[in-house]
Amino acid sequence: MQNEVVSREQWLAARRALLLKEKETTRLRDSVNAARLALPWVRVDKDYAFDTPEGKRSLADLFDGRSQLLIYHFMLGPDWEAGCPGCSFLADHVDGALPHLNHHDVTWVAVSRAPLEKIAAYKRRMGWKFPWVSSFGSDFNFDYHVSFSPEDLAKDKVFYNFTAIEPAEAHDELPGLSAFYRNDKGEVFHPYSSYARGPEELIGTLMILDRAPKGRNEQGTMNFVRRHDEYEDAQTAPSCCH
């Protein structure tokens, strides 16, 4: 790989043209963020129970005294041996943000259907500190369209990322991010969810690679990613399944 080599003056002209696009992207991002904040909300009336290290907790309990809750739907199914490499890649960026999020009235929690002991073992392996709870035995993952039963996958279509997709494009678990708000009355609302590549901007490493000379240098979406303790074995193919 080598791009065209030009004079400093030619480079400056090209860079200024790109700057206009970068500024346009920034303005568009600001507009999208404003539209996101203006979305209508849905009241969450259903009771959900989660297994946590402190015992059973409700969705309202997960706010941990704050008014805003971000739940990352982490792909780790009940029978999986390890978490999804892509979800693990994103999770590597969370711990450093926690003090800033908590100070800004936001609680971050990962949720998976795997039993709590399996979550705890993988969390220890990865060295993470963020809260991570189990929705095993709950409808939560199914209601927020990130888990699919064998019966779901046997249908002609499954619902993911706000549309119907072929079951072949789905696994029993898929990733996502959901936001919740709790008011002074204790009522809980669901303002926002994002799936597939939607939470990609949370992965700071990708944003850094986008500015490197070779960019992401990938042959498929994040095909270069391994769990952070697996890079010594460069031949290990990443997989989000089991």
Rank of each mutant, 00 (worst) to 15 (best):
residue 197 R to Y: 02
residue 28 L to H: 08
residue 12 L to Q: 14
residue 81 E to I: 10
residue 67 S to R: 12
residue 230 E to K: 13
residue 184 D to L: 00
residue 168 A to V: 14
residue 35 A to D: 15
residue 37 L to Y: 05
residue 141 N to Q: 04
residue 6 V to C: 00
residue 170 A to Q: 13
residue 94 V to P: 10
residue 43 R to G: 04
residue 54 E to S: 11
residue 1 M to I: 04
residue 201 E to S: 03
residue 199 P to A: 06
residue 64 D to F: 07
residue 204 G to Y: 08
residue 53 P to E: 11
residue 66 R to F: 07
residue 153 L to H: 06
residue 128 W to N: 04
residue 99 P to S: 09
residue 61 D to W: 00
residue 205 T to C: 07
residue 179 A to G: 09
residue 34 A to R: 13
residue 5 V to Q: 06
residue 84 C to T: 12
residue 242 H to A: 04
residue 200 E to R: 08
residue 183 N to K: 00
residue 235 Q to D: 14
residue 132 W to A: 03
residue 121 A to P: 01
residue 132 W to F: 04
residue 223 N to E: 10
residue 151 E to T: 05
residue 85 P to R: 13
residue 189 F to Y: 09
residue 92 D to F: 08
residue 14 A to M: 07
residue 211 R to N: 12
residue 239 S to C: 05
residue 113 R to M: 09
residue 53 P to A: 11
residue 126 M to D: 06
residue 193 S to D: 05
residue 155 K to F: 03
residue 111 V to K: 06
residue 103 H to R: 15
residue 123 K to Q: 11
residue 141 N to V: 02
residue 75 M to E: 14
residue 164 A to E: 15
residue 103 H to Q: 12
residue 184 D to Q: 11
residue 187 E to Q: 12
residue 240 C to N: 10
residue 160 Y to I: 10
residue 216 R to D: 07
residue 83 G to H: 13
residue 199 P to F: 02
residue 113 R to A: 02
residue 156 D to P: 03
residue 236 T to W: 09
residue 220 G to V: 00
residue 48 Y to C: 05
residue 1 M to Y: 02
residue 69 L to P: 07
residue 118 K to G: 02
residue 173 E to K: 08
residue 181 Y to R: 13
residue 228 H to G: 12
residue 80 W to M: 07
residue 126 M to V: 03
residue 242 H to C: 04
residue 163 T to C: 01
residue 3 N to C: 04
residue 96 G to H: 05
residue 236 T to L: 15
residue 157 K to M: 14
residue 179 A to C: 11
residue 107 T to P: 04
residue 130 F to K: 13
residue 233 D to I: 10
residue 84 C to W: 15
residue 5 V to G: 01
residue 234 A to S: 14
residue 192 Y to W: 07
residue 120 A to L: 05
residue 188 V to L: 03
residue 15 R to V: 01
residue 109 V to Q: 09
residue 31 S to V: 02
residue 168 A to S: 14
residue 206 L to S: 08
residue 172 D to M: 10
residue 131 P to K: 12
residue 8 R to C: 01
residue 182 R to W: 04
residue 105 D to G: 02
residue 173 E to T: 12
residue 48 Y to L: 02
residue 57 R to D: 05
residue 26 T to P: 05
residue 201 E to W: 05
residue 64 D to H: 08
residue 50 F to S: 01
residue 241 C to M: 02
residue 199 P to R: 07
residue 99 P to E: 10
residue 150 P to V: 09
residue 77 G to W: 10
residue 129 K to W: 03
residue 157 K to F: 14
residue 237 A to Q: 12
residue 119 I to W: 03
residue 230 E to W: 13
